[in-house]
Computed example of a mutant assay.
Amino acid sequence: MPAVIDRIEELMRYETAGDPASNLKWTKKTTQKIADELTVLDIKISKTTVGKILKSLGFSLKTNLKNIANGGKVLTKEKREQRNQQFEYIQKIRRHFNELTNPSISVDTKKKEPVGNFKNPGTRYKREADLTNDHDFLTYAKGKAALYGVYDEQENKGFVSIGMFVKEGKGFSSSDTPEFAVESIERWWIYEGSKTYHSTNKLLIEADAGGSNGHRPHMWKVKLQELLCNKHGLEVTVCHYPPGASKWNLIEHRLFSEITKNWQAVPLRDYETVLKYTQSTKTTTGLKVDAMLVDKKYKKNIKASKDDLKMLNIKRHEINPSWNYTLYPN
């Protein structure tokens, strides 16, 4: 057997990657291919035995992990310092809001889900398997479900506006826009936030640096001013995560991941199914989720006018002013 192990290690020599923090190694060779190559060397061994030997040598099956921030871009020392400073600043502001029992929410749009008879990853207990399309082409879809979520950390509650982006010709009836994002936050405030935090007018929003709620779109700030500050009298502080750091946004692992778990292996054949499984998401730690369907059509590429920008009552913070700012009612 030692000779067999030596031969296997030799075969794996140029097919091996590993984790520098542990003894785990992995390979792109299959156990059957290794067994076949050993047969050529007059070593007869089954693929099952090869698998056991590989395990004893520290190999395991691996998939890709998305854990390299910024798409693998090399950050300068200044950018790294700015990035760390922003993480610390977000924690500081969040702690301040929580101590005063002012609402702090994490927001984002979940990955858009095709609505139709498509396979959904995962398994669930059923007497018979669901039969789905053999291809996941969007041409077969009824549309897309755009879940814009609001996660309230203090209450451990999620509120999700499910945009019904229905298929129209080669495109879709609606888009993920700053207006869609802010109106989703306003819905949370109307249905939940104003009732839970009725004695305060201050709100902290933690958002990604890009997308419909990014720090660059003027319309994001214009709609915050119009719908939250002026209409509801809220003083809104926004802190954006650094570019490429969306995985650190609380909503990603506190809310969206749980929704995905709840509907795993469930074909999202219609919008009612998306709504039902979103609303029924809960955890042993007390997470509760409410949701509603939104059929309003949002047009993309709508620009803020000069008059809109003049109406902004905004004060940028001293630390990373592009990412941190507060809007006040006019």
Rank of each mutant, 00 (worst) to 15 (best):
D295L: 00
T30E: 12
A141W: 06
W26K: 06
A17I: 12
D208A: 10
T39Q: 06
L138V: 09
G171R: 09
K52D: 07
H253G: 14
E272M: 06
I34G: 07
L65M: 08
M292R: 06
D134R: 15
C229V: 01
T63G: 15
L100K: 11
Q82W: 03
L38D: 10
H253V: 08
E153M: 02
D307E: 15
I251F: 07
R94G: 04
S174V: 05
E206N: 13
E78N: 08
A265H: 02
A181S: 02
Y148Q: 03
Y325H: 04
F59V: 10
D36V: 06
T284A: 14
N213W: 07
W220P: 01
E226R: 01
D176C: 05
F59H: 08
Q279T: 15
E9W: 04
E10I: 03
T27Q: 13
N120P: 00
K276A: 10
Y277P: 07
G58R: 13
R269N: 05
Q32Y: 10
V40F: 04
L41T: 09
M292P: 01
K299H: 06
E168C: 11
I319C: 06
L204Q: 05
E252R: 15
I162Q: 05
Y325Q: 02
E183I: 01
H96Q: 13
M164Q: 13
G244Y: 09
D152Q: 05
L287M: 03
D308Y: 12
A146K: 00
N262T: 15
I259E: 04
G169N: 08
E37I: 06
T278I: 10
A129M: 12
Q86N: 15
T76I: 09
K167M: 03
G286Q: 09
H215L: 14
V236Q: 02
K157I: 02
G18D: 08
L287R: 05
E15I: 03
K195L: 15
P121A: 03
V160F: 00
S257I: 12
L38S: 11
E81S: 12
P242Y: 09
L24H: 12
D176E: 13
R7M: 13
Y241W: 09
G72Y: 13
R124Q: 01
K44P: 00
N23I: 11
C229S: 02
N98K: 09
G71H: 04
V222F: 03
V40N: 07
F118N: 07
N262I: 03
V266H: 14
F118S: 09
P121L: 05
E183K: 10
R13S: 06
G211W: 05
F256D: 04
T284G: 09
F87E: 06
A35L: 11
S175Y: 11
S175C: 09
S175M: 06
G286H: 10
E88P: 01
A21H: 14
F97H: 10
N320Y: 05
W188I: 05
L11H: 05
I190T: 13
T177W: 06
S257R: 15
S199V: 07
R216F: 08
